[in-house]
Design a protein around this nucleic acid. Structure first.
Length: 509
RNA sequence: GGGCUUGUAGCUUAGUUCGGAAGAGCGACGGACUCUUAAUCCGUAGGUCAAGGGUUCAAAUCCCUUCAGGCCCGCCA
């Protein structure tokens, strides 16, 4: 096997060992190993074992993390998914041939199966007195340093498998991510919601304000967009008669990458007929407090050096009240011109184009209030200008029945009483489309099919979307989204020609 | 897009301030060792100092450009 021109840098010694084993007829890469015990179970079951070897034999498997060879005895540390245990291997016990085989061909990083008897060494370490060893997988790459491990952040993200091998606490973070998602699923399905999958490739994108990724379907001869949100398809399901639906959706937004944004991110979107935004706030509070309590065991958690308390009920404020009480600005008592002057004085950008005081309210909120919302806080009643998919407020002129949940200054959830008036929706879309054609790269497209669907009638419906990645950040106390996404998007490195010549020309308008 | 900052052996790194022969630990390789645990001891090999250019008698070190990261800010309602 020649891999000299592949860029692979396998350890030559290990390659040679492998060749030798093959020549000797050793069964390499066997298909199966009858593992009877997991290390964590062994540790629990034999926690009281003494210096005498246990009568009971265990059979387990895992990766070798360290090997300490003492000549005629070897100590080694074997690790599986959840735990590690020490191995004790003596020439006397396994015989000279077997012992030499181990010394010569089995090393740190290899995956082996073993059998033996638990006991405790004189230094008190629970250990397996090994009587049988099988090489299951020869590793051709040597592991990073045993003490410091892998700390290079870039390498950790690019070679996450190595990060997971070496930094086993990272596995805990992703275990919690997996648990969180399955808890969301069971919470909702336990309340009679149905989970569906809607198109990721969409001819018309919508449901959020964001730039999409564009691709091209050769047989259809048309551009398609990777969805920025599942919203408009899930509402079609409600129109179709499904009353409680949700999707755990990967969304794609063609925007910059930082500690809180990855181009693809996960969200759960939930719609329920005959409910409004108050019900959705209650549902959001119910789900998230349940998640925190289930995963962390309590409602109070630590995050970024501070404390968060998820004990319901959470604080609720209208956007107006939040700006008045937390920023000290009573927007109702000023004229539009005065508010623009205040915005200018505060160095707020983008206020010039505002045509109503409500748009300035949003700017003041974002600039002066968002960062203060550390404990879980619902902000409700958003200006109609910024909420093209939310129903007009039942009593507050110029506002919509929309809310967002903020935790640690981060937007965690966004929901509303869904706009189900087709003509109103058409008008809102037209305004978005005008803005898009005027150069707003994040304004929404006009989705005529969706309007048509609304024309058949959507019941009064409440909807909400929760950002899963950010929830995982909160419960795992991570300040960067890259720490909770297994394979975060990274710029390609190395051969620059790959970037240009492999480019899908048709797919890049 | 802006600011700060990082890149030295497979991994963890010293050396950069103030230019003067690229060092260490782990790992690898050879050897010793029957209760070690970051095992220990003896020996050996391993480097395009991210890449390119410049200044200089002399550059890992100073200057410029580029590449790939990290943190913060902007953008992302």
């Amino acid at each position: 096997m020649d891999f000299r021109d592949t860029g692979l840098e396998f350890d030559q010694n290990r390659i040679e060992e492998l060749d030798q084993l093959r020549r000797e007829g050793y069964p390499l890469y066997p298909p199966v190993f009858e593992r009877k015990d997991r290390i964590r179970e062994i540790r629990e079951k034999f926690s009281a074992v003494g210096h005498e070897r246990s009568e009971e034999r265990v059979v387990t498997a895992g990766r070798l993390y360290t090997v300490r060879n003492h000549g005629k005895t070897i100590f080694a540390d074997l690790g599986d998914e959840r735990a590690r245990i020490q191995l004790y291997i003596r020439k006397n016990d396994i015989g000279e041939a077997h012992f030499d085989f181990f010394s010569r061909y089995i090393e740190r990083g290899d995956i082996i199966g073993i059998g033996g008897y638990p006991f405790r060494t004189k230094l008190g370490e629970l250990t397996i007195w090994v009587d049988d060893i099988v090489l299951l997988t020869k590793s051709l790459n040597s592991l990073p340093e045993k003490f410091h491990g892998l700390t290079n952040v870039e390498k950790r993200y690019r070679q996450r498998y190595l990060d997971l091998i070496m930094n086993t606490e990272i596995r805990e973070t992703f275990r919690m991510r997996s648990l969180l998602i399955s808890e969301i699923r069971s919470y909702l399905t336990g309340r009679d919601f149905l989970e569906f999958e809607t198109p990721i490739l969409q001819p018309v994108y919508g449901g959020a304000n964001a730039r999409p990724f564009t691709t091209y379907h050769h047989c259809l001869c048309q551009n398609l967009f990777l969805r920025i949100a599942p919203e408009l398809y899930l509402k079609r399901l409600v129109i179709g008669g499904f009353e409680k639906v949700f999707e755990i959706a990967r969304n794609f937004r063609n925007e910059d990458i930082d500690t809180r944004h990855n181009p693809e991110f996960s969200m759960v979107e939930i719609y329920e007929a005959y409910r409004d935004y108050n019900d959705m706030m209650a549902l959001t509070e119910g789900i998230i407090s349940h998640l925190v309590h289930t995963i962390c065991g309590k409602y109070q958690i630590e995050f970024g050096g501070g404390h968060l308390d998820f004990t319901p009920p959470w604080r609720k404020m209208s956007m107006e009240d939040a700006v008045r009480d937390l920023a000290g600005l009573d927007t109702r008592s000023y004229s539009l011109e005065d508010l623009k002057k205040i915005a200018g004085d505060k160095g707020i950008e983008g206020y010039e184009a505002a045509t109503s005081w409500r748009e300035l309210l949003v700017l003041f909120f974002e600039e002066m209030v968002e960062g203060q919302l550390i404990q879980p806080t619902f902000i409700y009643d958003f200006p109609i200008e910024n909420s093209p998919l939310a129903k007009k407020h039942r009593s507050k002129e110029g506002f919509t029945e929309r809310f967002e949940l903020f935790i640690c200054g981060m937007e965690i959830a966004n929901g509303f009483s869904e706009l189900n008036d087709p003509l109103d929706q058409l008008g809102r879309f037209q305004r978005q489309d005008d803005m898009r054609k005027a150069g707003d790269l994040e304004a929404q497209m006009l989705d005529y099919d969706f309007i048509d669907a609304l024309g058949y009638g959507m019941p009064p419906t409440g909807g909400v979307g929760l950002g899963i990645d950010r929830l995982v950040m909160l419960v795992t106390n991570q300040s960067s989204i890259k720490e909770v996404i297994l394979f975060p998007q990274m710029r390609s490195e190395g051969d620059a020609t790959l970037k240009s010549s492999d480019k899908n020309e048709a797919g890049t308008p």
